[in-house]
Protein backbone atom coordinates (compact mmCIF):
# COMPACT_ATOMS: atom_id res chain seq x y z
CA UNK A 1 0.00 0.00 0.00
CA UNK A 2 2.63 2.45 1.18
CA UNK A 3 5.06 1.37 -1.48
CA UNK A 4 2.67 1.50 -4.41
CA UNK A 5 1.72 5.08 -3.55
CA UNK A 6 5.40 6.02 -3.50
CA UNK A 7 5.87 4.38 -6.89
CA UNK A 8 2.87 6.25 -8.19
CA UNK A 9 4.24 9.51 -6.85
CA UNK A 10 7.58 9.08 -8.61
CA UNK A 11 6.00 7.76 -11.77
CA UNK A 12 3.91 10.86 -11.92
CA UNK A 13 6.94 13.06 -11.41
CA UNK A 14 8.83 11.27 -14.20
CA UNK A 15 5.94 11.60 -16.60
CA UNK A 16 5.59 15.30 -15.87
CA UNK A 17 9.34 15.83 -16.28
CA UNK A 18 9.21 13.96 -19.60
CA UNK A 19 6.40 16.12 -20.88
CA UNK A 20 8.20 19.28 -19.83
CA UNK A 21 11.36 18.18 -21.64
CA UNK A 22 9.33 17.44 -24.74
CA UNK A 23 7.72 20.86 -24.66
CA UNK A 24 11.05 22.60 -24.18
CA UNK A 25 12.62 20.66 -27.06
CA UNK A 26 9.69 21.54 -29.25
CA UNK A 27 10.28 25.21 -28.67
CA UNK A 28 14.04 25.24 -28.57
CA UNK A 29 14.99 23.05 -31.57
CA UNK A 30 14.27 25.64 -34.28
CA UNK A 31 16.23 28.20 -32.28
CA UNK A 32 19.23 25.92 -31.94
CA UNK A 33 19.16 24.96 -35.61
CA UNK A 34 18.95 28.52 -36.88
CA UNK A 35 21.65 29.69 -34.51
CA UNK A 36 23.98 26.82 -35.44
CA UNK A 37 23.52 27.30 -39.17
CA UNK A 38 23.67 31.06 -38.97
CA UNK A 39 27.31 30.68 -37.92
CA UNK A 40 28.23 27.53 -39.82
CA UNK A 41 31.00 27.88 -42.37
CA UNK A 42 29.90 27.54 -45.99
CA UNK A 43 31.61 24.16 -46.48
CA UNK A 44 30.25 22.64 -43.27
CA UNK A 45 26.79 23.79 -44.19
CA UNK A 46 26.84 22.10 -47.58
CA UNK A 47 28.73 18.98 -46.51
CA UNK A 48 26.23 16.09 -46.53
CA UNK A 49 28.18 14.22 -43.78
CA UNK A 50 28.04 16.93 -41.15
CA UNK A 51 24.85 17.50 -39.14
CA UNK A 52 26.32 19.67 -36.44
CA UNK A 53 28.78 22.12 -38.00
CA UNK A 54 32.34 22.14 -36.70
CA UNK A 55 33.66 25.38 -38.17
CA UNK A 56 32.01 28.64 -37.33
CA UNK A 57 32.17 32.07 -38.93
CA UNK A 58 30.64 35.53 -38.55
CA UNK A 59 30.77 35.98 -42.32
CA UNK A 60 27.05 35.56 -43.01
CA UNK A 61 26.00 37.96 -40.33
CA UNK A 62 28.59 40.44 -41.51
CA UNK A 63 27.32 40.16 -45.08
CA UNK A 64 23.77 40.83 -44.00
CA UNK A 65 24.77 43.80 -41.92
CA UNK A 66 26.71 45.19 -44.87
CA UNK A 67 23.67 44.74 -47.08
CA UNK A 68 21.66 47.12 -44.87
CA UNK A 69 20.52 45.03 -41.89
CA UNK A 70 22.14 47.45 -39.46
CA UNK A 71 19.97 50.25 -40.69
CA UNK A 72 16.94 47.95 -40.65
CA UNK A 73 17.57 46.89 -37.04
CA UNK A 74 17.80 50.50 -35.97
CA UNK A 75 14.60 51.25 -37.87
CA UNK A 76 12.84 48.33 -36.22
CA UNK A 77 13.90 49.41 -32.74
CA UNK A 78 12.76 52.96 -33.43
CA UNK A 79 9.39 51.78 -34.71
CA UNK A 80 8.91 49.41 -31.76
CA UNK A 81 9.80 52.08 -29.23
CA UNK A 82 7.51 54.68 -30.81
CA UNK A 83 4.76 52.05 -30.89
CA UNK A 84 5.20 51.32 -27.19
CA UNK A 85 5.24 55.01 -26.29
CA UNK A 86 2.13 55.95 -28.27
CA UNK A 87 0.12 52.84 -27.47
CA UNK A 88 0.90 53.16 -23.76
CA UNK A 89 0.23 56.90 -23.70
CA UNK A 90 -3.19 56.26 -25.20
CA UNK A 91 -3.87 52.81 -23.76
CA UNK A 92 -3.00 53.20 -20.07
CA UNK A 93 -5.49 56.00 -19.31
CA UNK A 94 -8.17 54.05 -21.15
CA UNK A 95 -7.28 50.87 -19.29
CA UNK A 96 -7.34 52.75 -15.97
CA UNK A 97 -10.76 54.18 -16.76
CA UNK A 98 -12.10 50.73 -17.63
CA UNK A 99 -10.67 49.30 -14.42
CA UNK A 100 -11.66 51.93 -11.87
CA UNK A 101 -14.80 53.68 -13.05
CA UNK A 102 -18.33 52.65 -13.79
CA UNK A 103 -19.81 54.51 -16.74
CA UNK A 104 -22.50 54.03 -19.34
CA UNK A 105 -21.57 52.06 -22.43
CA UNK A 106 -18.51 50.54 -20.76
CA UNK A 107 -19.20 47.00 -21.93
CA UNK A 108 -20.08 48.09 -25.46
CA UNK A 109 -16.85 50.06 -25.69
CA UNK A 110 -14.82 47.11 -24.48
CA UNK A 111 -16.45 44.88 -27.04
CA UNK A 112 -15.73 47.38 -29.81
CA UNK A 113 -12.10 47.54 -28.80
CA UNK A 114 -11.76 43.78 -28.92
CA UNK A 115 -13.69 43.84 -32.19
CA UNK A 116 -10.97 45.99 -33.71
CA UNK A 117 -8.62 43.06 -33.40
CA UNK A 118 -10.80 41.08 -35.77
CA UNK A 119 -10.07 43.33 -38.76
CA UNK A 120 -7.68 41.55 -41.10
CA UNK A 121 -4.83 43.94 -41.68
CA UNK A 122 -4.96 43.05 -45.40
CA UNK A 123 -8.29 44.78 -45.73
CA UNK A 124 -7.04 48.14 -44.57
CA UNK A 125 -3.59 47.99 -46.17
CA UNK A 126 -4.42 49.69 -49.47
CA UNK A 127 -6.63 52.45 -48.02
CA UNK A 128 -3.91 52.99 -45.44
CA UNK A 129 -1.26 53.51 -48.10
CA UNK A 130 -3.45 56.03 -49.96
CA UNK A 131 -4.16 57.84 -46.73
CA UNK A 132 -0.48 57.89 -45.80
CA UNK A 133 0.53 59.27 -49.19
CA UNK A 134 -1.98 62.10 -48.72
CA UNK A 135 -0.65 62.79 -45.24
CA UNK A 136 2.97 62.46 -46.35
CA UNK A 137 3.52 59.58 -43.93
CA UNK A 138 4.35 56.95 -46.52
CA UNK A 139 7.78 55.37 -46.28
CA UNK A 140 8.28 56.91 -42.83
CA UNK A 141 9.02 55.15 -39.56
CA UNK A 142 6.36 57.18 -37.78
CA UNK A 143 3.85 55.88 -40.29
CA UNK A 144 4.76 52.26 -39.55
CA UNK A 145 4.73 52.94 -35.82
CA UNK A 146 1.24 54.46 -36.08
CA UNK A 147 -0.01 51.39 -37.92
CA UNK A 148 1.59 49.14 -35.29
CA UNK A 149 0.03 51.28 -32.57
CA UNK A 150 -3.37 50.69 -34.09
CA UNK A 151 -2.69 46.96 -33.91
CA UNK A 152 -1.30 47.00 -30.38
CA UNK A 153 -3.70 49.48 -28.79
CA UNK A 154 -6.65 47.14 -28.14
CA UNK A 155 -4.29 44.70 -26.48
CA UNK A 156 -2.67 47.40 -24.33
CA UNK A 157 -6.07 48.73 -23.22
CA UNK A 158 -7.51 45.36 -22.28
CA UNK A 159 -4.37 44.10 -20.56
CA UNK A 160 -3.69 47.30 -18.64
CA UNK A 161 -7.29 47.49 -17.48
CA UNK A 162 -7.02 44.02 -16.01
CA UNK A 163 -3.67 44.90 -14.43
CA UNK A 164 -5.10 48.05 -12.84
CA UNK A 165 -8.17 46.16 -11.71
CA UNK A 166 -5.81 43.79 -9.92
CA UNK A 167 -4.56 46.61 -7.68
CA UNK A 168 -7.09 46.88 -4.82
CA UNK A 169 -8.79 50.25 -4.85
CA UNK A 170 -8.31 50.64 -1.09
CA UNK A 171 -4.56 51.01 -1.67
CA UNK A 172 -5.16 54.12 -3.73
CA UNK A 173 -7.86 55.33 -1.36
CA UNK A 174 -5.52 55.00 1.61
CA UNK A 175 -3.03 57.22 -0.21
CA UNK A 176 -5.78 59.75 -0.85
CA UNK A 177 -6.77 59.74 2.83
CA UNK A 178 -3.18 60.38 3.86
CA UNK A 179 -2.84 63.43 1.68
CA UNK A 180 -2.39 62.64 -2.00
CA UNK A 181 -4.72 63.56 -4.84
CA UNK A 182 -5.85 60.98 -7.38
CA UNK A 183 -2.92 61.67 -9.69
CA UNK A 184 -0.37 61.38 -6.90
CA UNK A 185 -2.00 58.19 -5.64
CA UNK A 186 -1.82 56.75 -9.15
CA UNK A 187 1.85 57.50 -9.67
CA UNK A 188 3.05 56.54 -6.19
CA UNK A 189 0.84 53.55 -5.44
CA UNK A 190 -0.93 52.03 -8.43
CA UNK A 191 1.83 52.58 -10.98
CA UNK A 192 4.64 50.85 -9.05
CA UNK A 193 2.32 47.95 -8.25
CA UNK A 194 1.22 47.62 -11.86
CA UNK A 195 4.76 47.85 -13.21
CA UNK A 196 5.52 44.13 -13.56
CA UNK A 197 2.33 43.57 -15.51
CA UNK A 198 2.88 46.65 -17.63
CA UNK A 199 6.42 45.49 -18.42
CA UNK A 200 4.98 42.26 -19.73
CA UNK A 201 2.59 44.23 -21.89
CA UNK A 202 5.51 46.34 -23.19
CA UNK A 203 7.49 43.23 -24.12
CA UNK A 204 4.53 41.85 -25.94
CA UNK A 205 4.02 45.11 -27.82
CA UNK A 206 7.70 45.26 -28.69
CA UNK A 207 7.70 41.75 -30.11
CA UNK A 208 4.51 42.32 -32.02
CA UNK A 209 6.00 45.37 -33.71
CA UNK A 210 9.37 43.69 -34.20
CA UNK A 211 7.78 40.72 -35.94
CA UNK A 212 5.21 42.54 -38.01
CA UNK A 213 6.11 42.19 -41.67
CA UNK A 214 3.09 42.85 -43.85
CA UNK A 215 2.23 46.44 -43.00
CA UNK A 216 5.90 47.31 -42.75
CA UNK A 217 6.54 46.00 -46.27
CA UNK A 218 3.55 47.77 -47.74
CA UNK A 219 4.16 51.12 -46.11
CA UNK A 220 7.92 51.44 -46.58
CA UNK A 221 10.25 51.39 -49.53
CA UNK A 222 13.60 52.78 -48.45
CA UNK A 223 13.08 52.88 -44.66
CA UNK A 224 12.64 49.14 -44.26
CA UNK A 225 12.18 47.61 -40.82
CA UNK A 226 14.06 44.39 -40.21
CA UNK A 227 11.37 41.86 -41.21
CA UNK A 228 10.56 43.85 -44.35
CA UNK A 229 14.25 44.09 -45.19
CA UNK A 230 14.78 40.36 -44.75
CA UNK A 231 11.71 39.55 -46.77
CA UNK A 232 12.85 41.61 -49.72
CA UNK A 233 16.63 41.08 -49.68
CA UNK A 234 17.62 37.94 -47.79
CA UNK A 235 15.03 35.58 -49.18
CA UNK A 236 16.74 35.47 -52.56
CA UNK A 237 20.12 34.70 -50.94
CA UNK A 238 21.64 31.25 -50.10
CA UNK A 239 20.18 29.28 -47.17
CA UNK A 240 22.87 30.08 -44.61
CA UNK A 241 22.18 33.77 -45.19
CA UNK A 242 18.52 33.07 -44.44
CA UNK A 243 19.52 31.40 -41.17
CA UNK A 244 21.71 34.37 -40.36
CA UNK A 245 18.72 36.61 -41.07
CA UNK A 246 16.61 34.46 -38.77
CA UNK A 247 19.21 34.83 -36.04
CA UNK A 248 19.28 38.59 -36.41
CA UNK A 249 15.51 38.58 -36.08
CA UNK A 250 15.52 36.49 -32.92
CA UNK A 251 18.54 37.89 -31.15
CA UNK A 252 17.49 41.44 -30.16
CA UNK A 253 14.05 40.20 -29.13
CA UNK A 254 15.68 37.59 -26.92
CA UNK A 255 17.96 40.15 -25.30
CA UNK A 256 14.99 42.39 -24.64
CA UNK A 257 12.98 39.59 -23.07
CA UNK A 258 15.90 38.53 -20.88
CA UNK A 259 16.38 42.05 -19.57
CA UNK A 260 12.70 42.58 -18.89
CA UNK A 261 12.09 39.06 -17.65
CA UNK A 262 13.03 39.67 -14.06
CA UNK A 263 10.32 42.30 -13.80
CA UNK A 264 7.83 39.78 -15.01
CA UNK A 265 8.21 37.10 -12.42
CA UNK A 266 8.08 38.84 -9.11
CA UNK A 267 8.54 42.27 -7.76
CA UNK A 268 8.66 42.79 -4.03
CA UNK A 269 7.67 39.17 -3.74
CA UNK A 270 4.16 39.72 -4.96
CA UNK A 271 2.68 38.69 -8.23
CA UNK A 272 -0.10 40.77 -9.62
CA UNK A 273 -2.06 39.22 -12.41
Amino acid sequence: MEESSIVKYYLRKIIIAGLVILAVLWVITPFVISILYAFASKTDYYSPNILIPLHYTLEHIQKLLDLGATRAIINSVIVAVITIIISFALGLPAGYAFAKFVFRGKDTLKLLIIGLRMFPILVIAVPLVTLYIKLGLNDSLLGVALAHTAMALPFVIIISSSIFAGVPKELEEAAMIFGLDRKGAFFRITMPLALPGLTAAAIFTFIMSWNEVFIASVLTLTNRTLPAFILTSAMAAPDFIKFAAGFIMIFPAMVFVFIARKYLITMWGITLK
Binding site: L171, A174, A175, M176, I177, F178, L180, L193, W268
Partner: peptide
Amino acid sequence: LPPRERNVSMVFQSYAIWPH
Protein backbone atom coordinates in the same frame (compact mmCIF):
# COMPACT_ATOMS: atom_id res chain seq x y z
CA LEU B 1 -14.44 67.81 -0.26
CA PRO B 2 -11.84 65.22 -1.33
CA PRO B 3 -10.37 63.09 1.51
CA ARG B 4 -7.06 64.94 1.68
CA GLU B 5 -8.76 68.23 2.52
CA ARG B 6 -10.53 66.76 5.55
CA ASN B 7 -7.50 65.88 7.67
CA VAL B 8 -8.82 62.47 8.62
CA SER B 9 -6.95 59.26 9.22
CA MET B 10 -8.30 55.79 8.63
CA VAL B 11 -7.71 52.14 9.37
CA PHE B 12 -9.28 50.16 6.55
CA GLN B 13 -11.17 46.96 7.18
CA SER B 14 -8.92 45.37 4.53
CA TYR B 15 -5.85 47.12 6.09
CA ALA B 16 -4.83 48.63 2.72
CA ILE B 17 -1.15 48.74 3.55
CA TRP B 18 1.01 49.21 0.48
CA PRO B 19 2.73 45.99 -0.67
CA HIS B 20 5.62 47.74 -2.38
